[in-house]
Simulated scan of single mutants.
Amino acid sequence: MTAALRKTFCLTRRVPLQPQAPSWTASWRCAHALASVQKALRLPEKKLQGLLFPFSELEGHLARGVSQANFQLFHPSLEDIARAEALFVPSPKHKIDYYSSAVRMDHAPSINQPEVCFMGRSNVGKSSLIRALFSLAPDVEVRVSKTPGHTKKLNFFTVGKAFTLVDMPGYGHKAPKDFVDMVEPYLTTRANLVRTFLLVDGSVGVQKLDRVAMEMCEELGLPYVIVVTKIDKRSQGTLLANLLQLQEVIQKHTEGCYPQPFLVSSTQFHGIYLLRCFIAHVTGKLHLATSATQSGAERVS
């Protein structure tokens, strides 16, 4: 990473005036009411479409002539979504669990399977999203804090022998002081890392530090994807304005970013099924069944 990017990440860190006890909840004791797409199928068609493909709820607000193509590149069938979901269901032969944590790469576990990582600004909802993705495995402990910045290590979660998911410390406000020294070696040396998921808060739009993180991914030559969180926290008009701003940034200033941002709400479950399907696909564990989705999926790699 260039000295300028390092300086930006480090200068934005603020040290709290006094220590605060972490406030977090452990794993869910029971699965979310909409954890499975099978439960979602009982909903009215319009509500179901909004959960499966959140952008469908914004289409009517788009000005005439605005292209929707890049918002619908990855558009799997219901069958694809159901098959991907099976990977997120634990069984005696397919255990889903927290594996270990690391503060340096020499502490990182050696796991020989595809890996994806989640990174984003402190308080972007990263741990909440991971907990939603793992909601069909309620015994998995994903700590979610009421205060930002409680993730101080690289946390590794194994999904059977299919893939590993890594929860990274948040950058910006209350980031660990050694954030860059912890994260950069991981991103540059982790040979089995297949995709980085960069989270952006949909309620406030792209921030300066998000742009810095995108520049870092570009500089390191990482294939990455933008996940827009908290889409239930603002009006559809505000969300759409933030989304169009993000789309412009992706189109004009990135090369390694997948053109389609993924919209999610960890509380309402919008976009969770689609994101699971995308993760299954980029880790090589799901080949899309329908030819209609292949043209968009080809751009994943």
Rank of each mutant, 00 (worst) to 15 (best):
Q294C: 09
L51N: 10
G172T: 03
N123Q: 12
P114V: 05
T164N: 05
R6Y: 15
I272L: 06
D167C: 00
R104L: 04
A3G: 07
K230W: 10
G221L: 04
E218A: 12
E255K: 12
L165M: 15
P90S: 02
D181V: 00
P54K: 00
V15H: 10
K177P: 06
E59M: 08
F118Y: 12
T293L: 05
L222M: 06
L62Q: 08
I226D: 07
K174S: 09
P114R: 12
W24C: 09
L246W: 06
K39W: 11
A280Q: 04
V200Y: 08
E218M: 13
C117Q: 02
L193H: 00
R14T: 13
F278Q: 14
S266E: 07
Y99I: 00
V144P: 07
V37T: 08
Y171A: 03
E255L: 11
I111Q: 13
T147C: 06
Y273F: 13
S23M: 09
L239I: 00
T283D: 04
L165C: 10
L193S: 03
S77N: 10
E59P: 01
M182F: 07
M119P: 03
S36Q: 06
A35M: 09
E45P: 03
E218T: 10
P22Y: 09
F9D: 10
T293K: 05
N70C: 06
P148I: 13
P16Q: 12
D210N: 13
L243H: 05
S291D: 13
L136Q: 13
K126T: 07
A40I: 12
L165A: 13
L240F: 04
G256V: 05
F156I: 05
S235G: 12
T283C: 15
R14G: 02
Q49R: 15
P90E: 02
N123W: 08
L198H: 00
V89N: 08
Q260L: 02
A31W: 04
A26H: 13
Q113A: 10
L220Y: 14
M1I: 11
T238S: 15
V194H: 04
T254D: 12
A132C: 05
S67T: 14
V89E: 11
T164W: 03
